[in-house]
Computed example of a mutant assay.
Amino acid sequence: MNLIKTGDSWKFATEADLEDFVWANLKELFGFIPLKRQYYVNGQICDILALRENKQLVVLELKNAEDRYIVQQLTRYYDALQELKPLEDEIDYQQPISLIAIKPNFHRDNFIDKKYHHLSIDFFEFAVLADEFNYYLQIKNLDLDNEKVSIIEIPHQNRERNEDIPPPPRGLMNRLAKCSSEQQEGILKIRQKVLSFDKRMEEISSAVSFRYGNCNSKASKFCAEFYFDSKGIPIIFLWLGLKNNKSDRISRARIWTDWQDNALLEGYVSSGIGAKMNSSKKTLLNRIQIMNEIAENENSKYRREYKYTNQYFKDRNRILRKLNNSEPLTYEERKLLEIDANKFCIVQGGGRINTYKFDHYDSLNGLVDVALEKWRKRL
């Protein structure tokens, strides 16, 4: 788990980290059976649904910081579940639904709301404890006179954190959960860098996009964006100069990266992910695979079909015109130019064709720096 130090105490880096740990240890902490997490029902999203041994439903709402409205939130979950009664094969709705709030501390308003509420809601207070070698989660049931305590060790990874930077929003963490570890680390590093750059920088979230700029209005100036396509694949956009970043005029540029700091500015997209660019990249990738097979295998079934080589030269000439005009090339366009066409034994005019080698890639970190500086100048 990711833990951060705040003053003399420790806490989970994000609410998602807290939820991950509680979900993985429901049996040991509470004796519950995990059922669903982030469960959507009638417009509400419940953090965790669990069961007792007798199939009684338990709803757990977790907060990584003080929250004055957790009782009202649990009430809405209760109403949605009672009305629709989902998962009836697994849940015994003849028994009352148990509601549990888990927080590091409770505001006095929470106790007032609970005092006059007709539903039974249990308050559990948690803390992250540390000794010389290990970290532990301690949970107390505040509704018992003896404050029953559960303690469990936390496998951890310490992370430094700028206290001025808010934790990643739940939506972003949910998206990152489906990404590779390299993508997760890369995106969180860029986010940290961007939000640390200037006090005016804000994070603007939507269903599939997380933008960074000075505000969310028609007059806003953006510098970076993480966009997640229909398959959950993250795409990075930076606001860079036109004409392959040589112009002072700024536009939204799509960035390719191998998540090892190698990057390319692939083109400019005003909105969305650039469906035309996506289609072209997919088509070129297929052609590259075919041409590599022709180049490496004299008995390839494609070698006798000239439509493939003819199309290759059309693509090559189109890409070379872009290269000569200093237009950005996609990763696939670069790879197509690196194919050794002289191996095709179909070189026209008897001359050899140059093979282009693109050893130099931009630094992703460097492109982010450029986008930040350009953003500050625009402000």
Score class of each variant (00 low, 15 high):
P86C: 03
E53W: 04
K85F: 09
D92Y: 04
I70W: 04
Q95Y: 05
L74I: 07
N105E: 03
E153F: 04
K140I: 14
E61M: 12
V71W: 06
V59P: 01
R68C: 11
L137F: 02
L84C: 10
E125F: 00
I45K: 13
I91R: 09
Q72D: 09
I139Q: 01
D92F: 11
R108M: 13
I151V: 15
A65M: 15
H117Q: 10
D89F: 14
L60A: 11
D89G: 06
Y136V: 13
E61C: 07
E147T: 06
L99Y: 15
I100G: 02
I45N: 08
I33F: 07
K55Y: 05
N105G: 08
K140L: 13
N146K: 12
A80Y: 11
C46M: 15
L74V: 11
F126L: 07
F106C: 13
K140N: 01
Y78S: 12
R68K: 15
D92A: 13
A127N: 00
N134F: 08
K140G: 01
L84N: 02
R52H: 12
F123H: 06
V128P: 05
F106Y: 10
L51I: 14
Y116G: 01
P96L: 07
F133P: 03
Q56F: 06
P104H: 02
P104L: 10
I70Q: 03
N42S: 14
Q72V: 04
